[in-house]
Amino acid sequence: MTVDELAEGVLRGDRRLLARAMTLVENRTPRGRHLLRLLYPHSGRAHTVGVTGSAGSGKSTLTGALTHELRRRGKTVGIIAVDPTSPFTSGAILGDRIRMQDLTGDHDVFMRSVATRGSLGGLSEAVADLMCVLDAAGKDVVIVETVGAGQDEVEVARTAQTTVLVLTPGTGDDIQAMKAGIMEIADILVVNKADLPGADTLLGHLRALLMLNRAEGWQVPVQRAIASREEGVVELADAIEQRRRFLETSGALETARRERARHQLLAAMRSALIRRAVGESEGVSRLEEAVERVASREIDPHTAAEELIEQVRER
């Protein structure tokens, strides 16, 4: 199958080809990059939502429940669920479909499980590319659900237009989120499992924190939910919709779009450079050589990097 046929299939909404296209893009093959080149102009229509929160906060259940609500509103949905790759074996167990299994019969929902894979170039870049494919395939809303709520998630969440941070009572989630700097980038806060003791304390704490509003003029809502019973998802879908309208009318969308474009461009440049400098097999040994020299303090990392890049230019 040619890349053009694949791209055509994606744009036509062929699920099988969409799945195949996502594999190419995720594997960062030259064909995958070619495909993205074809699909990128057709993207930019979907509203992208990042759902982040610590493990056990009920992100998958909430994402599933939110998707049900979006479907009731007639929106088509793409979901990217990220799970961690084992650093020891480079394998992964991706289990998010368990919580979203009743969506499987709906052909207007497309869900893909993605492992973090420790590749250079970064997860956020891969996720942005996968979102682009689902966007081009015509999904109205593309949701990315992150692994946890740490530094990596901040990066991933930034690739989405709206970031939903999920917290649960009694876990110290709020403290963790603040430490990771994710509180600052959250656009909507959801206290999930709100029937657990401590929910009101957490809600109060979050509301107090958010008295300090963000500069762009978006009032961050703090909501309660019990995702397992689909409680609070109507409100969440409303808030996401409001966020989208806010982005459109305030001009923030344009700013954010440029911001994201800049971010993605820089990220893409970074990986392109790395790929060229050390991406091929010969390059790997060049990298290892440089690593040795830096480790033994023979040379500083900045000079070593300049040298590697210089070699690319010479070739």
């Binding site: 259940t61 167990i93 289990g95 368990i98 919580r99 299994q101 397992s228 019973r229």
Partner: peptide, 10 residues
């Protein structure tokens, strides 16, 4: 009452 979904723990 709703239904229970397993908690994956591998």
């Amino acid at each position: 009452w709703g239904v229970y979904r397993e908690k994956l723990a591998i």
